[in-house]
Every structure is written in C-alpha cells, then in structure tokens.
C-alpha cells in the first residue's frame, strides 16, 4: 500500500518536473531527455546482453539506422511521425534479426569484435545513400506536432520520451517474465543444456538481437526528431560503448538497471563539471598553476574514479545499492531489537 503510494508520488514528481524546473535548469531537461532516450536503447541491450548473454559493441548502429528510417519515412515520404517511430523500430528489428545469424557462430570476444565491426560498417553504408542520409553533412529531421502541439522544446519532448519509455518498460518486463525471457536466461547460462532441453539457439539468439534492435530503432527515431540534426557519423563507437557501460554500471539483466545506469552516466559528467568549476572558483591554491590545472581537469578524472568505484564496490550494478541498503537497514533494526529486550527485562 505505502509502496504503491510511493510509486504514484514518484511518478507525479517526474511528470511535474518539466513544469517546475526554472529556466536556468534547461540544460538539466536536455540531459534528462537524452538520458531517457539512451535508457530505452539500454533496456533493449540489457535484454540481449544481460538476459540472453550476447554481447554487442555496435548497438549505436541500430539507433542510427532507426533514426534515418524514421526521418526518411516522416520527412521524405510523409508518413506521420507517430507512425514512423514504431516502424523505425520494426525495420531496425529486421536488421537485428539478420545480424543474429552470423552471431550464431560466434560468442564471447569474437562476437564482441563482430558487433564492433557491424557498428563501424553501418554508418559507412548509410553514408553512401546521400539522397536519404545526407552523407557526412547529415540531414535535419522536422519537429513533430500532435493535436496542434509542437514538440519543439526539450520540456515538451520529455513527455513524448516518457510515454514511449513507460510502454517499452512494460513490454520488457513482460518479455522477461515470459517463457521467452526464461529461454534467454537458459541460453545465457548454458547453451549446451538449453539446446538439450529443445530450446532452439537460432530462434532465440536472433530473437534477442531483433528485440534489442527494436528498442534502439524506436529510440533512434525519437532522437532524430529531438535533435533535429543527424549524420551517420553521430552513431559510432562512442555511443555503443556508453550503452555497454550503462548496463554493466546499472545492473545487468534488469530494466531498472538500464534506466538507473543511463541516468547516472548521463548526469555524472555534469555533476563532476560542477564540482570542478566550484573548485576552480573556490580560490584554493589560487597561486598554484599546477593545482589550478588539476582542478580544471578534475571532472574527467572524477568521472573515471567514480565509475571505477562503482564497478569495484557494486559489481552487480547500481541497482544493487537498493538491496544492500535494505539488508543494512534490516540488520540494524534487528541489532537494536536485541538490545532492547534485556533492558526491558530489567
């Protein structure tokens, strides 16, 4: 009961966020929009990597592909944006399904290299279709409108992303709880045994790739018409590694891990930047050229150090913090209870 209430309050707070944040914090809305779109991709990747055990270091390519499909449908062909976004997801899913087949013969490090190559090749290929993708100069996807409301601001777009996220979270949860979700875990834990149980590796591996590519494609579609500028070069190795970092950092195999990881990694650089700036302005070591330089570069170092600390102390991901906190709280309460009894006896 109280838990449900907490969820409702939490969700209401999220809904109110774009309304109550002052102008000066526009950058925060922008970062949140970006982080939540990345979270959508990460949820899909977490099904592929966390649940089904298949690594992908080229997932930004699916996002980019989805972005250009959505742009092409909306701004070249004239399909309504609301329709283009899911189609972009499905078209990306077909590409993901296709990539699943070579992946059948590969695993571990080799799959990592193959997906890396895929992530490298797709932008190059997109680049060749200049009429569609604009080549390296890119294209400018339109601002979507619905019921006369234009989603030109980051605040308005926030709701669009949120609705998509909620729907896709619901779908991901259902997949994970279904027989398909258990089959994914089975093939992650033991391909030999999964196969012996009659689970078709070909079917489920390609399915996992397709599902994760669907998520990336949808997010790519949203991304295109949010940023209003896309170029094949934007969807490279950097984002792919960011996605991989997010699921490991947040927690492999869980929806919440993908979201928490995306928000954490999305906001962390800004946080360390603020710390770095305040160090520089604090006046400490003002006469030391060396220390000023240290302060100036401290944000990257801090980001790195924090990432290392997280994987060191929370190997199960940030979501494990929640469990650890509960265990700590329980043991404290029990300890307090034990002390209370003898006192009461006296």
């Amino acid at each position: 009961m109280t838990r449900k209430l907490l969820y409702v309050i939490g969700f209401a707070a999220v809904l109110a966020l774009p309304q109550v944040l002052p102008e000066e914090l526009n950058w925060l809305i922008m970062l949140l929009d970006r982080a939540l779109m990345i979270a959508i991709v990460a949820i899909g990747l977490n099904i592929l990597t966390g649940n089904a055990g298949q690594i992908s270091l080229g997932h930004a390519a699916f996002m980019g592909f989805g972005a250009f499909v959505c742009y092409g449908l909306t701004d070249i062909i004239g399909v309504p944006f609301w329709f283009s976004v899911p189609i972009a997801g499905f078209v990306a899913a077909i590409l993901g399904w296709g990539l699943g087949f070579p992946a059948l013969r590969l695993s571990g490090h080799y799959l990592a290299i193959a997906t890396l190559g895929f992530g490298y090749a797709i932008p190059q290929i997109l680049n060749l279709f200049e009429g569609w993708t604009g080549g390296w100069t890119g294209v400018k996807p339109s601002v979507p409108t619905l019921f006369g409301i234009s989603f030109s601001s980051d605040r308005a777009y926030f709701y669009l992303i949120l609705v998509t996220l909620v729907v896709l979270v619901w779908i991901a949860r259902n997949i994970q709880r279904s027989a398909v979700g258990r089959a994914f875990i089975a093939l992650r834990d033991s391909e030999v045994a999964a196969q012996a149980m009659g689970i078709s590796l070909a079917k489920y591996k390609t399915m996992a790739f397709a599902i994760s590519a669907f998520y990336a494609g949808v997010a790519g579609g949203l991304w295109a018409h949010w940023l209003n500028y896309i170029s094949p070069g934007n969807f490279g190795f950097g984002i792919s590694i960011e996605l991989f970092t997010i699921i490991v950092l947040g927690g492999l195999g869980t929806v919440s891990g993908a979201i928490v990881g995306a928000l954490f990694l999305g906001l962390l650089p800004k946080l360390t930047e603020i710390i770095s700036l305040s160090l520089q302005r604090s006046g400490a070591f003002a006469d030391s050229f060396f220390m000023q330089n240290v302060f100036k570069n401290s944000n990257q170092v801090l980001t790195g150090v924090i990432l290392i600390l997280v994987v060191l102390y929370l190997p199960m991901g940030l979501v494990d913090l929640w469990r650890k906190a509960r265990v700590w709280w329980e043991t404290r309460r029990q300890a307090a209870g034990r002390q209370a009894v003898p006192r009461g006896v006296k």
């Binding site: 258990r182 089959a183 875990i185 089975a186 992650r188 834990d189 033991s190 030999v192 045994a193 999964a194 012996a196 149980m197 689970i199 195999g253």
Partner: peptide
Amino acid sequence: QIFTGLTVAENLRMG
C-alpha cells in the same frame, strides 16, 4: 550445466 540464474523450480520448468 544447470541454469545458474534460474531457480530450481524454473530449471525444472525448462526441462
């Protein structure tokens, strides 16, 4: 080769 991430009951269901 049991499925280490699944419970005993879920392992049996996979069978």
